[in-house]
Design a protein around this nucleic acid. Structure first.
Length: 234
DNA sequence: GCGACAG
DNA sequence: ATCTTGTCGC
Protein backbone atom coordinates (compact mmCIF):
# COMPACT_ATOMS: atom_id res chain seq x y z
CA UNK A 1 0.00 0.00 0.00
CA UNK A 2 1.35 3.44 -0.95
CA UNK A 3 2.11 5.81 1.89
CA UNK A 4 2.34 9.57 2.40
CA UNK A 5 3.23 12.12 5.07
CA UNK A 6 0.38 13.83 6.94
CA UNK A 7 2.02 17.25 7.24
CA UNK A 8 -1.00 18.84 8.91
CA UNK A 9 -4.63 18.36 9.86
CA UNK A 10 -7.20 18.88 7.11
CA UNK A 11 -10.00 19.96 9.41
CA UNK A 12 -9.33 23.69 9.12
CA UNK A 13 -11.15 26.91 8.37
CA UNK A 14 -10.51 28.84 5.16
CA UNK A 15 -8.42 31.38 7.08
CA UNK A 16 -6.33 28.61 8.62
CA UNK A 17 -5.95 27.03 5.19
CA UNK A 18 -4.42 30.22 3.81
CA UNK A 19 -2.06 30.39 6.79
CA UNK A 20 -0.98 26.80 6.15
CA UNK A 21 -0.29 27.60 2.51
CA UNK A 22 1.90 30.53 3.51
CA UNK A 23 3.85 28.19 5.75
CA UNK A 24 4.08 25.23 3.36
CA UNK A 25 5.02 27.18 0.25
CA UNK A 26 8.60 27.47 1.42
CA UNK A 27 9.04 23.69 1.36
CA UNK A 28 8.22 23.39 -2.33
CA UNK A 29 11.16 22.46 -4.52
CA UNK A 30 11.20 23.30 -8.25
CA UNK A 31 14.04 21.34 -9.82
CA UNK A 32 14.84 18.79 -12.53
CA UNK A 33 13.85 15.19 -11.87
CA UNK A 34 16.44 13.11 -10.05
CA UNK A 35 15.22 9.74 -11.36
CA UNK A 36 13.85 8.54 -14.70
CA UNK A 37 10.08 8.24 -14.96
CA UNK A 38 8.61 4.83 -15.66
CA UNK A 39 5.11 5.26 -14.24
CA UNK A 40 2.82 8.27 -13.98
CA UNK A 41 -0.47 8.64 -12.14
CA UNK A 42 -3.51 10.80 -12.75
CA UNK A 43 -5.96 11.70 -9.98
CA UNK A 44 -9.37 13.32 -9.86
CA UNK A 45 -12.66 13.46 -7.97
CA UNK A 46 -16.31 13.63 -9.01
CA UNK A 47 -19.45 14.49 -7.05
CA UNK A 48 -23.09 15.39 -7.38
CA UNK A 49 -23.79 19.08 -6.96
CA UNK A 50 -24.94 20.03 -3.47
CA UNK A 51 -23.82 16.69 -2.03
CA UNK A 52 -20.81 16.09 0.23
CA UNK A 53 -20.17 12.59 -1.06
CA UNK A 54 -17.16 12.55 -3.37
CA UNK A 55 -15.80 9.83 -5.62
CA UNK A 56 -12.00 9.93 -5.80
CA UNK A 57 -9.72 7.90 -7.98
CA UNK A 58 -6.18 7.39 -9.23
CA UNK A 59 -5.03 5.69 -12.42
CA UNK A 60 -1.41 4.63 -12.86
CA UNK A 61 0.00 4.35 -16.37
CA UNK A 62 3.26 3.17 -17.87
CA UNK A 63 4.65 6.35 -19.44
CA UNK A 64 6.22 4.58 -22.39
CA UNK A 65 3.08 2.81 -23.60
CA UNK A 66 0.30 4.64 -21.73
CA UNK A 67 -1.05 1.24 -20.70
CA UNK A 68 -3.02 1.19 -17.45
CA UNK A 69 -1.09 -0.52 -14.65
CA UNK A 70 -3.49 0.05 -11.77
CA UNK A 71 -6.74 1.82 -10.87
CA UNK A 72 -8.16 2.59 -7.44
CA UNK A 73 -11.30 4.40 -6.37
CA UNK A 74 -12.93 5.39 -3.08
CA UNK A 75 -16.24 6.85 -2.01
CA UNK A 76 -15.64 9.48 0.63
CA UNK A 77 -16.96 12.85 1.70
CA UNK A 78 -15.68 16.40 1.49
CA UNK A 79 -16.74 19.03 3.97
CA UNK A 80 -14.44 21.83 2.86
CA UNK A 81 -16.16 23.93 0.15
CA UNK A 82 -14.74 24.83 -3.20
CA UNK A 83 -13.01 28.17 -2.83
CA UNK A 84 -10.74 29.46 -5.61
CA UNK A 85 -7.19 29.18 -4.28
CA UNK A 86 -8.08 26.53 -1.70
CA UNK A 87 -9.01 23.62 -3.95
CA UNK A 88 -6.47 21.28 -2.34
CA UNK A 89 -8.27 21.43 0.99
CA UNK A 90 -11.41 20.08 -0.64
CA UNK A 91 -9.87 17.41 -2.87
CA UNK A 92 -6.64 16.10 -1.37
CA UNK A 93 -8.11 14.35 1.70
CA UNK A 94 -10.16 11.91 -0.41
CA UNK A 95 -7.36 11.57 -2.96
CA UNK A 96 -5.06 10.44 -0.16
CA UNK A 97 -7.57 7.74 0.76
CA UNK A 98 -7.37 6.48 -2.79
CA UNK A 99 -3.59 6.75 -2.72
CA UNK A 100 -3.49 4.46 0.31
CA UNK A 101 -5.13 1.72 -1.73
CA UNK A 102 -2.44 1.76 -4.41
CA UNK A 103 -0.10 -1.22 -4.61
CA UNK A 104 2.07 0.65 -7.08
CA UNK A 105 4.23 3.65 -6.13
CA UNK A 106 3.91 6.08 -9.09
CA UNK A 107 7.12 7.88 -10.08
CA UNK A 108 5.29 11.11 -10.80
CA UNK A 109 1.72 12.39 -10.29
CA UNK A 110 -0.32 14.65 -12.55
CA UNK A 111 -3.08 16.70 -10.89
CA UNK A 112 -6.22 18.20 -12.40
CA UNK A 113 -5.47 21.78 -11.37
CA UNK A 114 -2.53 24.12 -10.79
CA UNK A 115 0.93 23.56 -9.36
CA UNK A 116 2.74 26.80 -8.54
CA UNK A 117 0.50 28.76 -10.94
CA UNK A 118 -1.39 29.85 -7.86
CA UNK A 119 -1.71 33.18 -6.01
CA UNK A 120 0.50 31.84 -3.19
CA UNK A 121 2.44 29.44 -5.43
CA UNK A 122 0.94 26.33 -3.83
CA UNK A 123 -1.88 24.89 -5.89
CA UNK A 124 -3.22 21.35 -5.44
CA UNK A 125 -0.32 19.74 -7.33
CA UNK A 126 2.30 21.44 -5.15
CA UNK A 127 0.42 20.77 -1.95
CA UNK A 128 -0.10 17.15 -2.94
CA UNK A 129 3.56 16.80 -3.83
CA UNK A 130 4.60 17.75 -0.31
CA UNK A 131 2.38 15.04 1.18
CA UNK A 132 3.38 12.39 -1.35
CA UNK A 133 7.02 13.47 -1.30
CA UNK A 134 7.54 12.78 -4.99
CA UNK A 135 7.45 14.70 -8.30
CA UNK A 136 4.05 16.22 -9.10
CA UNK A 137 2.72 18.79 -11.55
CA UNK A 138 -0.57 20.32 -12.53
CA UNK A 139 -2.38 20.23 -15.85
CA UNK A 140 -5.46 22.49 -15.62
CA UNK A 141 -8.22 23.20 -18.08
CA UNK A 142 -8.44 26.88 -17.19
CA UNK A 143 -6.40 29.63 -15.56
CA UNK A 144 -6.46 30.64 -11.90
CA UNK A 145 -3.85 33.41 -12.06
CA UNK A 146 -1.34 34.62 -14.63
CA UNK A 147 -1.34 35.97 -18.16
CA UNK A 148 0.05 34.56 -21.36
CA UNK A 149 0.19 35.12 -25.09
CA UNK A 150 -1.78 32.67 -27.19
CA UNK A 151 0.54 29.82 -28.29
CA UNK A 152 0.75 28.86 -31.99
CA UNK A 153 -2.15 26.57 -33.07
CA UNK A 154 -0.10 23.41 -33.64
CA UNK A 155 0.21 20.72 -30.99
CA UNK A 156 3.37 21.03 -28.93
CA UNK A 157 3.61 24.83 -28.93
CA UNK A 158 3.52 26.68 -25.64
CA UNK A 159 3.96 30.13 -24.17
CA UNK A 160 4.91 31.09 -20.60
CA UNK A 161 2.31 32.12 -18.04
CA UNK A 162 3.44 35.03 -15.91
CA UNK A 163 2.27 36.40 -12.60
CA UNK A 164 3.91 39.36 -10.88
CA UNK A 165 6.87 39.03 -13.21
CA UNK A 166 7.46 35.35 -12.51
CA UNK A 167 7.09 32.51 -14.99
CA UNK A 168 4.70 30.18 -13.15
CA UNK A 169 3.62 27.78 -15.86
CA UNK A 170 2.81 27.33 -19.53
CA UNK A 171 -0.18 27.46 -21.84
CA UNK A 172 0.45 24.24 -23.79
CA UNK A 173 -1.27 23.15 -26.99
CA UNK A 174 -1.88 19.38 -26.71
CA UNK A 175 -3.95 19.23 -29.89
CA UNK A 176 -4.03 21.30 -33.09
CA UNK A 177 -6.35 24.29 -33.04
CA UNK A 178 -7.78 23.41 -29.65
CA UNK A 179 -7.65 25.45 -26.46
CA UNK A 180 -4.41 24.93 -24.54
CA UNK A 181 -4.08 23.27 -21.12
CA UNK A 182 -2.23 25.06 -18.35
CA UNK A 183 0.82 23.22 -17.05
CA UNK A 184 2.79 24.17 -13.97
CA UNK A 185 5.31 22.33 -11.76
CA UNK A 186 4.03 21.10 -8.45
CA UNK A 187 7.01 19.82 -6.44
CA UNK A 188 10.35 18.12 -7.17
CA UNK A 189 10.05 18.85 -10.91
CA UNK A 190 10.59 21.82 -13.23
CA UNK A 191 8.37 23.43 -15.87
CA UNK A 192 10.20 22.02 -18.88
CA UNK A 193 9.86 18.47 -17.58
CA UNK A 194 6.20 18.95 -16.71
CA UNK A 195 5.54 20.13 -20.27
CA UNK A 196 7.48 17.21 -21.72
CA UNK A 197 5.61 14.68 -19.60
CA UNK A 198 2.25 16.20 -20.51
CA UNK A 199 3.02 15.77 -24.20
CA UNK A 200 4.20 12.20 -23.64
CA UNK A 201 0.91 11.46 -21.89
CA UNK A 202 -1.11 12.85 -24.75
CA UNK A 203 -2.54 10.25 -27.08
CA UNK A 204 -2.00 12.80 -29.83
CA UNK A 205 1.45 11.42 -30.36
CA UNK A 206 -0.12 8.18 -31.53
CA UNK A 207 -2.83 9.45 -33.82
CA UNK A 208 -5.85 9.53 -31.53
CA UNK A 209 -5.63 12.57 -29.38
CA UNK A 210 -7.61 14.41 -26.76
CA UNK A 211 -6.94 17.80 -25.27
CA UNK A 212 -6.74 16.33 -21.80
CA UNK A 213 -3.74 14.02 -21.23
CA UNK A 214 -4.47 10.35 -20.54
CA UNK A 215 -3.75 10.20 -16.79
CA UNK A 216 -6.34 12.87 -16.01
CA UNK A 217 -8.76 11.85 -18.76
CA UNK A 218 -8.86 8.20 -17.74
CA UNK A 219 -9.17 9.06 -14.05
CA UNK A 220 -12.00 11.43 -14.83
CA UNK A 221 -13.82 8.59 -16.62
CA UNK A 222 -13.17 6.29 -13.67
CA UNK A 223 -14.55 8.56 -10.96
CA UNK A 224 -17.58 9.47 -13.06
CA UNK A 225 -18.36 5.77 -13.56
CA UNK A 226 -17.98 5.34 -9.81
CA UNK A 227 -20.40 8.19 -9.14
CA UNK A 228 -22.97 6.75 -11.52
CA UNK A 229 -22.68 3.36 -9.91
CA UNK A 230 -21.34 1.83 -13.11
CA UNK A 231 -18.30 0.65 -11.19
CA UNK A 232 -17.44 -0.32 -7.63
CA UNK A 233 -14.56 0.99 -5.42
CA UNK A 234 -12.31 -2.02 -6.12
C1' DG B 1 -14.12 49.67 -4.60
C1' DC B 2 -14.68 46.36 -8.75
C1' DG B 3 -13.80 42.27 -11.12
C1' DA B 4 -11.52 37.54 -11.44
C1' DC B 5 -11.72 33.26 -9.62
C1' DA B 6 -8.29 25.65 -10.58
C1' DG B 7 -12.53 21.99 -9.62
C1' DA C 1 -17.65 20.37 -10.67
C1' DT C 2 -22.56 19.06 -12.68
C1' DC C 3 -26.99 19.64 -15.51
C1' DT C 4 -27.52 18.19 -21.19
C1' DT C 5 -28.74 18.10 -27.69
C1' DG C 6 -27.78 19.82 -31.16
C1' DT C 7 -24.75 22.16 -33.90
C1' DC C 8 -20.93 25.02 -36.17
C1' DG C 9 -16.31 24.35 -38.07
C1' DC C 10 -12.18 21.88 -39.79
Amino acid sequence: MATYQLLHDWNVTPAEAVALQQQLRHQIQIQPLTKPVETIAGCDISFNKFEETVYAGIVVLRLETLEVIEEVGVISSATFPYIPGLLSFREIPSLLEAWSKLKTEPDVVMFDGQGIAHPRRIGIASHGGLFLNRPTFGCAKSVLVGKYDEPAPERGNWTPMRHYGEVIGAALRTKNKVNPVYVSPGHLIDLETAISLTLQCDGGRRGYGYRIPEPTRLTHNLVNALRRGERSPD
